[in-house]
Design a protein around this nucleic acid. Sequence first.
DNA 1: TTGAAAGCGCTAACAG
DNA 2: CTGTTAGCGCTTTCAA
Lengths: 343, 343
Amino acid sequence: MKTITVYDIAKEANVSVATVSRVLNDTAPVKASTREKVNAVIQKYQFQPNALARSLISKATGMIGMILPDITNPFFPEVFKGAEDEARAKGYTFFLCNSGGDYRRESEYLSALKEKRVDGIIFLGGRINASRCSPELASEVAELAEQIPVILVNGALPKSGVHRVMSDETLGAELAMQHLIDLGHRDIAFIGGVADMIPTMQKVKAFKKKLSENGLPIRPEWVLNKDFSVENGKELMAELLRGSKRPSAVMCVNDFTAVGAVKTAIERGLRIPEDISIVGYDDTPLSTTVIPELTTVAQRTYELGKQSVTLLHQLINGEKTKKVTMLRPELVVRQSTGPYRAR
Amino acid sequence: MKTITVYDIAKEANVSVATVSRVLNDTAPVKASTREKVNAVIQKYQFQPNALARSLISKATGMIGMILPDITNPFFPEVFKGAEDEARAKGYTFFLCNSGGDYRRESEYLSALKEKRVDGIIFLGGRINASRCSPELASEVAELAEQIPVILVNGALPKSGVHRVMSDETLGAELAMQHLIDLGHRDIAFIGGVADMIPTMQKVKAFKKKLSENGLPIRPEWVLNKDFSVENGKELMAELLRGSKRPSAVMCVNDFTAVGAVKTAIERGLRIPEDISIVGYDDTPLSTTVIPELTTVAQRTYELGKQSVTLLHQLINGEKTKKVTMLRPELVVRQSTGPYRAR
DNA sequence: TTGAAAGCGCTAACAG
DNA sequence: CTGTTAGCGCTTTCAA
């Protein structure tokens, strides 16, 4: 089936392709009668101009690429949704690239997106969370960012001026800790996360800082990392419970590990929050799904996506914007935390 | 910054653009020394050919569009992941379009994807689940499917031969019901879903069929629909519990409503499964997150995505494929169901 | 207002 | 093996 082009329209409407283009884009005055005639033919054939050909000339594709580590982690769909809602009005469509946090795949996608000439890229996870991101990996992104607008979400690249939108995870962790301390807890543990990923490091640092500030000892055996899964939450909670003394409160790196922690605690016959308080992070839908519902830190995930697009759009239009946008997280108190009770 | 093209490469390497193209695509023999020379220049400038220009000629973009109703529902990211994993190896990139189930937005995206000349489209939710999909809405997709390969996932269009990959939801619902009946339950309710959406209808039908087959009465007040949310699960469970007689088992349209049902049941002091059995549907990650873990029906979500791409790829290559691929769901027994106990 | 013609960056005959 | 050239489908001067 022959694809129909502006030439076909032009011929049938007895005008030139230039005129067809003009009515298509409303880019120059066209006599009303001519316009109607052309539109009629366009209607008749349901003609849609080839976006590829257009983009080839205009140098704009209306496409944004989003690279993220794991779309099955409910945090990311929320970011995506925020981004898409903001972008749709502006006429963008999204490439979604699931990197699995794998640097190789990130590179492949970066390259593919560049070839496809996306107007901008939103990058999450993977290398931009690594505490020691290799110079090659970093400069790959930094160099790309000089050709195509790039926004880093909740991450950073060593000595590169790439634009970022961030949730203040240090503050978030402090909020959670302060809450626990206000409830009278003194024996607090931290579980989950990857020790050399920046978000984890920031949280651990805030955790320790809050302990110190309040004259509480830091017990190394109460700072357990591994990954971000429910499974890991279970394991680490079990490990905590194996110790001679058990904490009265546990701060978790995210909602997944918090859920795991809750499950293990309950299995072991502990009541939450009477026997042990647990706080999550991210405020994913998961947190209201568990029993008891999770006290957690909301990092305004949706907003993260939205802001990224707003910024990206400004960048694409050549406007100057601030390098770092910091979003303020909020503590959401639900059922999994309660006052300290002496045993 | 000037974008560099094959001409720049050609000039610097002292060859013609044709030769550059040849080494780029390995489409005709090139003398080894020439090839090296060209490659060196390509390396030097980190040249990447413009995919738009390529696609304009080749009539293939390596892009697949996926339209789905709600990326924050964990069912869909899983489908996406299956699709992407399969597609990545084949060199495709994905447009992800979140329709919100809104027909208007579906149409907008359909149109945008067509303009962008995607190689194929995977369509989920929205109109293809409506029991009475208007002829215009249906033919919009059907007509598009004659120009671009389209796969419908877990849905259908009235009298249209569009290719589909489906999970057998009738069988799935029967499996769940049989399980409850085998456990000795006779007072079974069904909650959740939208009454005029096909997946809900199929499940309700299977639900009723199983009751009849086993000589059990169908109580209209025990078939409650509204939507697919956790909130709705809570509400409908509450309504069930308000009745004079309460069911000993509840089948839910999906895991969300099942979680809601579990929460309300526990709040009301019921033990699960001792006092009431609850079964979900979809086997989303949610189901292992709740306490007790959900007995549910796995519809092999990941596989759904994977198969869609396999099929789409065949269609794109002009191969003949069967119109309907039916995947067999499986019952996953966990903790939320148990034998009937007389009260 | 309108048309002719020159590209956008690349591939693919067709010659040599 | 390699170069010339004509497009792919559209927009955009430049003239008329």
